[in-house]
Design a binder for these strands. Structure first.
Length: 853
DNA sequence: TCACTGCATGGCT
DNA sequence: AAGCCATGCAGTG
């Protein structure tokens, strides 16, 4: 970086030597010069500066802030266009695509700004509403928010050294990464005062008083960004007044080198900048050892970002299952929550197990008290007790939240080493994409996802906290109650889950319910239609979420759940919504019958039914799964494990919109509202499972026949059937042993916990009435109908969309409607999906449909 | 009666 | 002295 101009204010020319424009009479201030003055800029440069277009890294060996030859971010290369603001949105998108880390001047990205973190949990509406200054990438950028993003917290350089020294010279020996140079994780110590910063922070500070006090944050590139799907959704952003100071920690294992001396550490030390209230107590500073970091990263190239740690109090480790989070940490590194209910948070533990905690807060003295709920199983599993330390860190890529631990006793370190090479509280499994075959996992009864290997450790922890379990019995029952939703959601999710590439799912039976188990993170994909073109080439058709046009894609294309034309990298000519649809209505109709002839009849009928929205909503769970999952593994579980404490007015969850059992007006049996649809669908699924299980038991006991007595077809009537028949039967360890207690795949013994827990309106005793033989038929019809409506909607929206080409007509509307099927690939994510694995979402609607049930 | 939930209190930083 | 947070406790089901 070279300084090319003289005094900041002596000249009438813009300080930026590449500009040479005259400054205005009241020149705007730019970066701070070594002299201490602020560079005076012309309006254009000032604006560019304020928007972070200048090199944002201070290079100590250079003399200024411009023409950065070290990092290449010279004004020349990003010379501001004249129409800054009009281009802002575009630039913003561009930044998004690159990841927030490359937002010039934006500083490190706090956790809460990392979309993937939210992906890891079930997003809630709150995520979209909590931000007072939302960025709407589609309509423009909220300037304030942008400014927030671009703002840089002021630092006192000398004050930030100690933590970095601790990192650099202490036992951590963590290399300060060069990322600080490239990615603006580095925060300029001589950060220029920005007018944007000032004005934007005020409301934010008001709204979010927290100031992430330390950071080790990571230049963030979310997976969503990578695939261009979710990207950095502005609605996920939170106007964080001061991005946390950050430092990216590469494990020595991977980068093996310290940064250049030029690199300035943006350390994680609480800012001693006079805002004492914002300081984080040292007891929360992460104290990761080399070993910790190595263990976290394993052999991967994961980047570890220690976030914070906390010593467990008696309350934390107690049976209440609530882990009080340091407020600053919670606000800095966990998703922002505006409602006390918070949101479920997926956390990976030291062994790669996934846990779902409820991250929430309580109002407390005009403040908030953040807690993680439901940590008891995890803490027990880790065999932690008061005095032990839990650590939170983050893995990149993936933004996975990792919860580690450190035993209070020094002996425990050895113990941990012996116990598991990497169980000093950190994970060997970098992220969900890591190919550890044991990472994925099944649902434990307590509502978290746990690996099978859990058993022995649980036993040990039970021994230690024996008394606790007794008192927890009811809690477990409640969890079981909650799990109704979980399991059913899982079942629904199963229809959307696809094995990751090169993996064949196996089926495990959990409490009598089958779940596909993937040895890697399953994938939620977008429904597509597989077909073969005229040349015999296998292709698939995917529908744009925005324009509803169908686009032809390679059969092996991996689509996220939300796919739009602009993501069509396979066909640039149709990579935008205005491009005409390649598929004519007739072709579409021809295409669809491949899937399910029966469905076409329904679709045809559907055109006469105006209200297909309700049924569509009945599938919203699936849709949400697909949309919200966005490649993340099993998000459904997190939602399902959410404890919903004391439903509040305004809560729109399925529980709250339904009168409590026995109270309020009951829904009629013919009610087709969303709740009833959902409930009935779930109930039907349950009954089918149960019936199947019972039949198998009978078959086993009487005939010793391994074949299930219930035809598979019945299961295929499942609203969210797992597979299409020829496609890949997964490694079905299943059915024969399903009902057996000796089933090795059986994770938990079936305790038949579902009685009376299906329909909030259905009294427990009614469940038996609603046996498959009695009522499930109508339920099946309901389910089928809902499914068909969904498919109908899909087709209608494609064919009838006003944006569509004139060549399109609503599919299913013609005489060919009889042939239209509803075999939809819900997971094109598998590369060999049409060959090796079941990727066809088969909805067999052989039974006559009844709209009202 | 008991476990869970949400809030309040007060010690401590 | 402010406010965080560990913990107590009352309300609820």
């Amino acid at each position: 970086m070279t300084s090319t101009s003289g005094a900041a204010s002596s000249s009438k020319i813009c300080f930026n030597s590449d500009c040479n424009d005259l400054k205005s009479e009241r020149p705007r201030k730019g970066w701070r010069l070594r002299t201490g003055e602020l560079a005076e800029l012309c309006d254009r440069c000032a604006c560019a500066f304020e928007e972070g277009r200048f090199c944002d890294t201070f290079h100590s060996k250079a003399s200024g802030w411009r023409n950065c030859e070290s990092c290449g971010k010279a004004p020349n290369s990003s010379w501001p266009p004249l129409l800054f603001h009009s281009s802002l949105s575009e630039r913003f998108k561009d930044y998004s695509a690159k990841g927030w880390s490359q937002l010039a001047g934006s500083g490190p990205v706090p956790w809460r700004q990392a979309p993937s973190l939210f992906n890891s949990s079930i997003p809630q509406p709150e995520l979209h509403s909590r931000v007072p200054y939302e960025v709407d990438l589609s309509t423009g950028i909220d300037r304030l928010n942008v400014s927030d993003r671009l703002s840089i917290p002021s630092l006192e350089k000398t004050k930030i050294e100690d933590f970095s020294e601790r990192l650099m010279n202490g036992p951590l020996k963590l290399g300060a990464p060069d990322i600080l140079e490239n990615g603006n994780a580095g925060i300029n110590c001589e950060e220029p005062p920005s007018s944007c910063l000032t004005k934007s922070q005020q409301p934010s500070l008001k709204e979010e008083p927290s100031n992430p006090p330390f950071g080790l944050a990571v230049p963030y590139t979310s997976p969503g960004d990578a695939n261009g799907q979710i990207g950095v959704s502005g609605t996920h952003l939170r106007p964080n007044p001061q991005p946390p100071l950050a430092k990216q920690l590469h494990s020595n294992l991977h980068n093996g080198l310290d940064s250049s001396s030029e690199t300035q550490i943006r350390n994680g030390r609480p800012r001693p900048d006079g805002r004492g209230r914002n300081q984080l107590f040292p007891r929360y500073w992460p104290r990761f050892t080399n070993q910790d970091l190595q263990q976290i990263s394993g052999d991967s190239n994961s980047i570890i970002t220690p976030l914070f740690e906390k010593m467990l109090s008696a309350s934390d480790a107690g049976r209440i299952g609530r882990l009080v989070l340091p407020k600053k940490c919670a606000e800095a590194y966990f998703p922002a929550i505006s409602q006390p209910e918070g949101l479920p948070l997926k956390v990976q533990d030291s062994k790669g197990k996934e846990w779902i905690f409820q991250f929430r807060f309580w109002p407390n003295n005009n403040s908030r008290m953040y807690v993680l709920e439901g940590v008891t199983p995890c803490i027990q599993n880790m065999q932690l007790q008061a005095g032990d330390v839990v650590t939170f860190s983050r893995l990149e890529p993936g933004g996975k939240l990792v919860m580690g631990f450190r035993k209070a006793s020094t002996a425990s370190a050895t113990e941990q080493d012996n116990e598991a090479k990497n169980s000093s509280g950190v994970s060997m499994h970098g992220d969900a994409e890591m190919a550890d075959p044991t990472s994925w996992s099944k649902v434990d009864k307590s509502g978290y996802i746990a690996k099978e290997a859990l058993g022995t450790k649980l036993a040990a922890s039970r021994k230690r906290k024996n008394s606790m379990l007794g008192s927890k019995s009811k809690r477990l029952r409640i969890d079981t109650k909650d799990l109704i939703e979980l399991k059913l959601t899982w079942e629904e999710a199963q229809g959307l889950l696809r094995p990751p590439p090169n993996h064949v799912p196996s089926v495990v039976v959990i409490e009598g319910f089958e779940f596909e188990e993937y040895e890697d993170a399953p994938i939620l994909g977008k429904p597509t239609i597989f077909a073969t073109d005229n040349s015999g080439e296998k292709i698939q058709w995917a529908q744009c979420e925005d324009c509803f046009k169908w686009r032809r894609l390679p059969s092996n294309a991996l689509l996220p759940s939300k796919w739009i034309c602009s993501s069509n990298s396979w066909d640039p000519e149709r990579s935008f919504c205005l491009a005409p649809q390649e598929l004519t209505t007739e072709q579409l109709e021809d295409l669809l019958p491949h899937c399910n002839p029966a469905a076409s009849k329904k679709m045809k009928a559907a055109k006469r039914e105006p209200e297909n929205v309700d049924a569509l909503e009945g599938l919203d769970t699936l849709a949400n799964l697909a949309i919200l999952g966005e490649g993340e593994a099993l998000p459904a579980s997190s939602q399902a494990t959410t404890k919903h404490p004391r439903h509040r007015p305004g809560c729109s969850c399925i529980v709250c919109i339904q009168p409590p059992s026995g109270k309020g007006p009951k829904h009629k049996q013919t009610c087709t509202c969303n709740v009833c649809q959902t409930v009935k669908r779930r109930f039907r699924t349950l009954m089918l499972r149960r019936e199947k299980k019972q039949s198998q038991k009978e078959a086993e006991t009487t005939c010793k026949k391994p074949q299930p007595s219930l035809p598979d077809k019945v299961l295929d009537d499942d609203p969210v059937p797992r597979t299409n028949a020829g496609n890949s039967s997964p490694n079905v360890k299943k059915v024969v042993s399903e009902g057996s207690d000796n089933d090795p795949n059986r994770v938990k013994s079936s305790t038949s916990p579902f009685k009376g827990q299906i329909d909030l309106n259905i009294q427990p005793e009614r469940e038996e009435e609603l046996s498959p033989g009695a009522d499930s038929g109508s339920m099946m019809r309901l389910i089928q109908d809902a499914t068909e409506r969904y498919l109908r909607q899909q087709m209608l929206s494609s064919g009838g969309n006003s944006n569509s080409d004139a060549t399109q007509t609503p599919p299913g509307g013609g005489s060919e409607g009889e042939k239209i099927s509803s075999s939809v690939n819900l997971g094109s994510s598998h590369r060999d999906s049409d060959r090796d694995h079941p990727t066809v979402f088969s909805i067999k609607t052989s039974a006559p449909s009844s709209a009202t049930g």
